[in-house]
Design a protein around this nucleic acid. Sequence first.
DNA 1: TGGCGGGTAATCGTCAGCAATCCCGCGAGC
DNA 2: GCTCGCGGGATTGCTGACGATTACCCGCCA
Lengths: 229, 229
Amino acid sequence: MAKLTSLKSEKRLLDRQAADGIRTHILEGILPAGGRLLETQLSEELEVSRGTVRAALAQLAREGLVQQVAFTRWQVSETSPRDAWELYTLRAALEGLAARLAAEHGVAADHKRLKSTVAELTRAVKDKRFDDVTDIDFRLHQEIVEIAKHRRLAEQHGFIMQQVRFHMVHSGFFPTDYAALVDEHAALIGAVIERQPDLAEQLAKSHNEAEVKLLAAHTEENPRAVTAS
Amino acid sequence: MAKLTSLKSEKRLLDRQAADGIRTHILEGILPAGGRLLETQLSEELEVSRGTVRAALAQLAREGLVQQVAFTRWQVSETSPRDAWELYTLRAALEGLAARLAAEHGVAADHKRLKSTVAELTRAVKDKRFDDVTDIDFRLHQEIVEIAKHRRLAEQHGFIMQQVRFHMVHSGFFPTDYAALVDEHAALIGAVIERQPDLAEQLAKSHNEAEVKLLAAHTEENPRAVTAS
DNA sequence: TGGCGGGTAATCGTCAGCAATCCCGCGAGC
DNA sequence: GCTCGCGGGATTGCTGACGATTACCCGCCA
């Protein structure tokens, strides 16, 4: 059952390893939003050449975590309410498609996995392990996308979710109504398992719209909480 | 009224110019699908260093036009029916969102521009200038996306449309029912102008679904027309 | 036929260095 | 006081050469 993980791609492609390292730092909030990134400094810390660092930064720029100011500097992206709106609307569109496809193409094994993850989510909420809740939430959505068997969709969704995570870390926004969260996910997964594509798509979209409204309210109350200089 | 176009970003960023050059060659079909790309050869032809060529190729790989086989070769992407399905389903989701937003946020000037482009399209079909029809079709969808004022959506849509163009060139698939094409676009633009977000989204999606069905029929009739070794 | 090993060719990664550009502070001039 | 221009310093952009690593091809051999 357990898949073999490719022996290759272990050590190789140094630029991607470099990107992984920088990405982790950004996603964990160690590097502040808007913070500057120096090629020479990174190349010393990571012990790779400047060229490799440049390749890594270009990749991260494509992922939306880093911005390039030509001839001047690299910096960690900043977070604005506008970004949050873009992320959630785009996420809704992508996850709507993913939910539809998953409802159409999912097989028994997929359904089993989804049920298991929902159960995990429910348990984590009951136990008030809220850090775990967030992780499981992300994983659940990722599983739906994987079931959709759509390479480009999975890639785009991954980038978007990375930015969502980044935005959450730097804006201090987290879900509040955990009961509703569980209900919405349970309903979505139910629609997927019962092979109701239209309903699944609709639920995936409305789930995201609910979040974007919460977020809007949050940024109203906490204006300019994080935006750097 | 006319905006000033930035004086900068004209000549600079050699790696992007290199990417532009290679991209054009690929999109025009000069380089065959699956065709190999040699760093040394490209660097000679473009008269830039190999490092710059590598940066350009990495960019094109992120855009989906080129594939990297680690330590071995770069090659132009190949086209499969699966790719076509991915492109059209993803495109439907993105353009659905774009149409909805455009219907919600579009202003009079936007509506005027859309009407003008639809008129162009109608005229081109009437005159049987079918090359122009394809270009105007692409431009119309791009205008809707621009009206949506959604940076990430515009970026993703651009990449997808590039791949759609690539796939059309290499699979020899082009629209056939031009009357229906004009009707569908007119209906979509009408919904946008009349500010009917739900209808606009629905029309954008069904328009794409119609195309994916045509494409499926086409690849049934012409199996393996282009897929290289 | 199937496995082993060497040769070749291409990419991956490094390095030193120069060019191009931007940022910033200082001083001149109004 | 304010604006403007002008260098100097810092950082990125790009190059060329080089060695390291890897994949592919092909012949040898059992």
